[in-house]
Design a binder for these strands. Structure first.
Length: 419
DNA sequence: TCTGGGGTCCTAGGACCC
DNA sequence: TCTGGGGTCCTAGGACCC
């Protein structure tokens, strides 16, 4: 059996945790740059403001009735880690899936599943304070559906267990669901399935495997098989090492200035290098891309170029040198809206191949990056940067409604007032 | 004025080899 | 009249997830 635990309205719930006045209020969380709505509380959903709507297109009347927050990933990431710690303590295998979800592999456990689910939900509520729901079923795909069903319950704790794929209540349930509701089926596949007369999740799982492979792909065949109770997604599918790194941001305002773009690029290279070193990886290729605003009427321009590094590296300075050369090649006098750095061909740091002419240089670079990471961890990210990176630089993103980093910065600890 | 930022996997087709 | 049967590697593009 597998379980899927999912935090309800995660970002909105995180904001509420430290700001109780938001309880019962429609809360929407905005994307980076305060661009559009990416998370909503139940009250916000009830106002029919859709997911993904650009912030400036929210009806002004509704805008006055809701609270909008800029996204605060430092806070969400820390709370996510706490939820996972609570769960990991109680089950043998936990696989993080996204910032607000994880799968539990319950194989080998002999339990009253409902009691276990209720216990896990209560422990997260008690120790972290966030509402979660849990679905338990014979495959991950079914556990995802069970979780959805749990969320629909009005009673707490929200737990849904499907003991077997043939359970009559499950079959009846699948007849009411669209294939679109199934994990792995998006708009396109749903439309193509509808064209073939496959209109429900139940119909999908009854479609012969050979038919699905022939007309679609092995991916959809696996999904159908999972709906039939045969686990097809192995542990290693989700555990496989990272294959690429992308660091990108939209700018707070259009950027023409080359020096300013170079500053943003340094910042992204710095972040990319830190991600690499945190995972003990090195990259063999680096790419950058630049684009203008696709939503404007001006002609859209998108440029992207890759280069191989002389040898695999996790050194911020080397990444930056290569990236700046690419910028020189790509830059044109245009009003850019977004810039990104991509790393690929990642390998573990231990597999480093030295060359005849290395000398002491690699060891020095490695020591330098170690000192770099230590200093930034101890004295803060502003203490040491690759070139000037002022907080008010033209390329910095907007985030006008940002909450404090309550759990990760001493100076932003929440205060409780006792009267 | 104002529209996010990450990731993964699979397939088809082209270019090449014998 | 009639032109094989195996491979590999790479890339672009499409699909999906949160």
């Amino acid at each position: 059996m597998f379980a899927l635990i999912d935090c309800n309205n995660f970002y909105a719930a995180c904001e509420r945790l430290f700001e109780p006045r938001l309880e019962g209020v429609p809360v929407g969380v905005l994307s980076n740059n305060d661009g559009c709505v990416i998370a909503r509380s139940e009250e916000f959903k009830a106002l029919d403001i859709p997911m993904g709507i650009p912030t400036h297109k929210i009806d002004p009347t509704l805008r006055r009735r809701v609270v909008l927050k800029s996204s605060n990933y430092t806070l969400y990431g820390d709370l996510s880690a706490r939820v996972q710690q609570v769960l990991a303590r109680q089950v043998p295998t936990l696989e993080p899936y996204s910032i607000d979800e994880c799968f539990l592999d319950l194989r080998g456990m002999q339990e009253d599943w409902h009691a276990l689910g209720a216990h896990l939900v209560r422990s997260v509520v008690r120790e972290v304070g966030l509402p979660v729901s849990i679905g338990i079923a014979p495959t991950r795909t079914l556990a995802k559906l069970a979780n959805r069903q749990a969320k629909a319950q009005s009673t707490r704790p929200q737990v849904c267990v499907w003991q077997s794929a043939d359970a009559p209540e499950l079959t009846a349930h699948l007849k009411r669901l669209s294939p679109r509701d199934v994990w792995g089926i998006g708009e396109r596949l749903n439309a193509r399935l509808a064209g073939l007369g496959v209109l429900t999740a139940a119909a999908l799982r009854e479609t012969p495997d050979s038919e699905l492979r022939r007309r679609f792909s092995v991916v959809l065949a696996r999904t159908a098989s999972e709906l039939n109770g045969h686990p097809c997604l192995s542990m290693s599918d989700l555990e496989s090492p990272r294959r690429s790194i992308l660091c990108s941001r939209s700018f707070g305002r259009p950027l023409r200035d080359r020096a300013a773009l170079a500053g943003a690029l340094r910042h992204h290279c710095q972040r990319a290098g830190e991600k690499l070193r945190r995972d003990a990886m090195q990259a063999s290729a680096i790419g950058i891309y630049l684009r203008t605003n696709p939503h404007h009427n001006t002609p859209y321009h998108h440029a992207c170029e890759w280069t191989a590094l002389p040898f695999p590296s996790a050194d911020t300075q080397q990444l930056n040198r290569a990236a700046q050369r690419l910028l020189t090649r790509l830059w044109q006098p245009l009003a850019y809206q977004k810039l990104g750095v991509m790393l690929t061909e990642l390998t573990p740091r231990q597999q480093r191949q030295t060359t005849l002419f290395d000398g002491a240089e690699p060891a020095r670079q490695e020591a330098l990056m170690e000192a770099w990471d230590t200093i930034r961890a101890r004295y803060g990210r502003q203490a040491l940067t690759l070139g000037p990176q002022p907080a008010d630089a033209a390329w910095q993103m907007n985030s006008a409604y940002r909450s404090a980093c309550y759990t990760t910065r001493w100076e932003e600890l929440p205060r409780a007032l006792a009267r």
